[in-house]
Structures are given as C-alpha cells and as structure tokens.
Amino acid sequence: MNDAHAKLRGVKRIYRGVGKQPPTHALGPVDLDLKRGEFLSVVGPSGCGKSTLLDVLAGLARPDEGTIEFEGKLVQGEVPDGIGVVFQEDSSFPWLTVRENAGFALARAGMAPAEIKERVDATLSFMGLASFAESYPVQLSGGMRQRLCIARTLVTRPRLLLLDEPFGALDQQTRLLMGDELLRLWRETGATVLLITHALDEAAMLSDRVAVMSARPGVILDLVETDWPRDRDSRIVSEPSFGAVTARLWSTLRGESMKSMATQ
C-alpha cells in the first residue's frame, strides 16, 4: 500500500517506571495503514494505549521502537504540518474569545489578519459558532466548547485529523449529533480522520474501518470494514447491518475488556 496517508510499522511505546516501579509496556507492536480520506476508528478497553497510539502518531510522543510515516515523511517527536489534533478534555483558552481561540494557531504561525478573519469566520459558521464569536469559553456549554476545540483545529486545514475521544464528556444525544457533524466535516474537508473512542456504537456508526485493540499492551486484534456509503449519518444505527458490525466488535472486545478489568 504505497498510497497510505500515514503508516505505522512495529510501533512500540514503553513507559519508564517512576522510582522503583517496573516499566510499563503500553503499546504495540502496532502496524497500521491509514488510507487517504478514510474514516478510521480505534476502539479498545480502557488503558489499552489508544491515546498513546494517537500521541505517537501525532508526534507528541516518540515511539520506543518502530517508525511512523505521514505523507511519506518520518514523524519524530514533533507534530508535522498537516496533522490536527482534538483532545478529550476541553482545552480552549479561557482568556481568549471564541474568535481569538479559533484563530490562535494561525496568528502564531504569522498569517495575515485579514486571511485569519476569513478562515475563522468560515470555520465558526461551519461549526455553528458564528453568533458566539465574541463570547468567552466559560459562556458556552460543554458541547459548544468541544466544537470550538474542533474549530480551532479545523482552521489550520489539517489533512489528517486525529480525535482523542472528543465527545467523551458529552451526553448521548449531543454525541449522536456531534457524530453527524463530524461526518459532515469529514465529507466536506476530504481529510483523513482517525477517531479514538471507547464507544462501540460511535465507532460502528461513523467509520469506514474500525480497529479493535487488545488489553495492555495494546495491539490491533481485528480490522472491521463497515461498507457504509460515504453519504451517511447517525440514522444508520437502525440498519440491520449496524447490529452485525457492533456485534462483531463486541465479540472481539468482550474478552479484552474482562482482562483489562481484572488487572485494574
């Protein structure tokens, strides 16, 4: 697969122990190819190294073994241009307005103010935040703040969007709707999306492919193709094949979740 957008080969991550604690083998070895423009989700039991996988792929952490390539170049301890990350926790800056938050990365990169304004305006209205441009994050709801974090990443026009359980703190209805929005932005931006999640239904509903990870140290046990049409939304949950996909994910994951619970 030479057209892979991002390529992981034998990636391992081991955390050194603090003091006399033994080192923790958190991840790997993982081999994974992300196809350009696909929507891939990673599910796995808690503590299986899903977030570590994202950190390593983004260049926020270095792998202890193996290599990561993004658009043909090695990723080494630095976030490459073209990758955007949205984290689980709300990381909007409370001292900046919604508009300033959204334009933050572009302003630091030295872009002209007129162009920043144009991009920020477009992204804020795309994310339904246009009327809150001059508000501060504390004045927004949790879901809106997470949308702001997504907007802040989208303005940089990432070609690979990495999402680390971005809806983890939201209620179920909001999550379903945010999932629809995520599908819409995936279609309209044409970006490759990698979503880390612990919610099976979310992974099954959104993705072209779902990678199922084992308990720690996390390796990929199964790659499930969903065969959904590109033009889809959350109503797919009523399809009979949706049940089949979720069932297959759960049959692999059940044993791993039990192992993970036993060690915690």
Binding site: V85, F87, S91
Partner: peptide, 12 residues
C-alpha cells in the same frame, strides 16, 4: 492545565 500545553504543541 496540561491540556493547554498539549494543544499548543499540537498547534506547532
């Protein structure tokens, strides 16, 4: 918050 620093690093 550590999240602000991670986000800042992710924004290069």
């Amino acid at each position: 918050k550590p999240g602000w620093l991670r986000a800042a690093r992710a924004m290069r």
